[in-house]
Nucleic acid binder design. Structure first.
Lengths: 331, 331
DNA sequence: TTGTAGGCGTTATCAT
DNA sequence: ATGATAACGCCTACAA
């Protein structure tokens, strides 16, 4: 049993050095595994640290080294599997590069998003990953000018200060629509619960694909609080619907069940993001897959490149893929 | 357009002071809105800061003040709505108390969980919220002795060093089983995909309730990689199943659809956590609700109390509630 | 191999 | 109202 320190006071490297009977610089070297430390004093220091329950103070370390070893991720929805898939990739790659990841949750609130970004920058993260298309351009510009910043969503007009890694939302929507057209659907709707740049890009894709097929186009926007009106949709003859994400598609499928609308028989449904939810639903959900984990990994690399000196903005676009499941009829 | 600083170098309070033509102490006061600063010099400083794009360095601040203003949340699953609901509560209350929240994701990996906890402590968070029952006792003891720590899951034997806020898992499971019994079910199973202390507590509740009802008890444990075998369950006469969470219940409902098992007619299903998923499924899912947001809020209060001097461990237990939906027959 | 000393950016104490 | 100055805990030349 080791004597406890005064409440609130945590042991410092000086305490460790004293207890080990060495100078604080030597303690510092030993603790970090620097070369040029005799085995004996290394053991002395390590033992002392262990006994005292020493923890390096990363504030002090960050201050003197000028880097924090931290990658910050700010996302606007914690319970969105598309976002969390990206975080997984970020964490994987960060670990390989010996960096730590901290996450800030924007809670679907633009103001909170901004607060989180501020917090990260003040924490002096070495890189910032933003998974949201709700961040004002001006905020992105400033963030990007202060720290290597990567935005992982579609941006209508990304500022030069930030890197962007996205998947081709226009093409993804086209893929989905083409799949529906090939299956013989004539009246295809796009149903969105979001008004982001991402959703807008998907609308563009839908329009393109439907024009090419010379088919009518129905765009439905439902605000957060409102209910989806499936009957109205059916009444207007819609026989297939592409949703802005899997969550919205899940809502549609539930409503279809409730209203005895056969999926895909009477109504084909396609989601977006290909999250775990797509496999969980019945009927299982056809969806557009984005390489979330890889995108997250690349984001960390982009930060590393910036740190290494790259100055041009990165504009990376991944190609999404159609994953066919039971919510659409096979052509 | 302001002259840019040398790459990599961020303006400090000294730069601001110089530009404003005042001492750094005065700049510091002005920046923090301290009283005792003349309006004129305050404006001077604030303008200078604005022009330079000054950001306080929280490492330096944290070092000298001894507090970071940070609350750390470590959770072992980012895409678990029960966990994210708690985070929401933490964020709400932290904001009211003027603290910032950073999140660490354990990624379902005990080793990573520990790394995240270490990171938070080294970052000198003022309080630590742990949403996981996978953290070794020893790690909790150490964390709790270094920083006010609150664990938000059921713990078989919580260390004296940490506060715990949980909901009564034994009672919750009892509630669920009693609901099934009242509906006339005779062969009730508990199906779990987790072997945590939380799940064990729910098993205890199931056993208690079934013994009281003098009904047989079936406990099924399915490991992460394995599939749920619904046919086997049906073959053994099970007509109702309580799942360890809503996600597992969703799997059961999908399987039931696939195998033409009527829910709730042939098989009643109850989830746990009452997440958004419960409302999304068809049939909608009866589930056990935990006051996640409130629990998250209370966690921040617990931290504040500790900081204010409380030394006894907090042991708070919330009472869960049954939310009846369509996946169980009305009694 | 080890120790000394200076400084990272900020706050706070003490003068003025 | 304002300004020196000494910490905070750590790292890193530079010396020994």
């Amino acid at each position: 049993m080791v004597a406890e320190l005064a409440a609130g006071r945590r042991p410092t490297i000086i305490d460790v050095a004293k207890r080990a009977g060495v100078s604080k610089s030597l303690a510092s070297r030993a603790l970090r595994g620097d070369a040029g430390v005799s085995t004996s004093s290394r053991d002395l220091v390590l033992d002392a640290a262990q006994e005292l329950g020493y923890r390096p103070n990363s504030a002090a370390r960050s201050l003197v080294r000028g880097v924090s070893g931290l990658v910050g991720v700010v996302l606007n929805q914690l319970d969105n599997q598309h976002h969390t898939g990206i975080v997984q990739g970020v964490q994987e790659r960060a670990k390989e590069l010996n960096a730590r990841v901290i996450i800030g949750n924007g809670a679907q609130n633009p103001e909170e998003l901004q607060r989180q970004i501020d917090t990260m920058i003040e924490l002096r993260v070495d890189g910032l990953v933003i998974v949201s298309s709700w961040v004002p351009r001006q905020v992105l510009e400033r963030a990007g000018s202060e720290v290597p910043t990567v935005v992982l969503t579609h941006l209508a007009d990304p500022p030069a200060e930030v890197d962007t890694i996205a998947s081709d939302d226009v093409y993804g929507a086209q893929l989905a629509v083409e799949h529906l057209v090939q299956a013989g659907h004539q009246r295809i709707a796009y149903l969105s619960r979001s008004a982001s740049a991402t959703s807008q890009a998907r609308i563009d894709g839908v329009v393109l694909a439907l024009e090419a097929a010379q088919l009518p186009c129905t765009i439905v926007q439902v605000d957060a609080g409102d209910d989806i009106n499936l009957q109205e949709l059916s009444a207007s003859g819609v026989d297939a619907v592409l949703c802005n994400n899997d969550l919205t598609a899940a809502e549609v499928i539930r409503l279809a069940h409730e209203q005895q609308v056969q999926v895909p028989g009477q109504l084909a449904v396609i989601g977006y993001d290909n999250t775990a939810l797509a496999r969980l639903l019945y009927p299982s959900l056809t969806s557009i897959d984005q390489p979330q984990v890889n995108m997250g990994r690349r984001a960390v690399d982009a930060i590393a490149e910036r740190t290494a000196g790259r100055t041009e903005a990165l504009r990376e676009l991944y190609t999404p893929q159609l994953v066919v499941r039971s919510s659409t009829a096979q052509p």
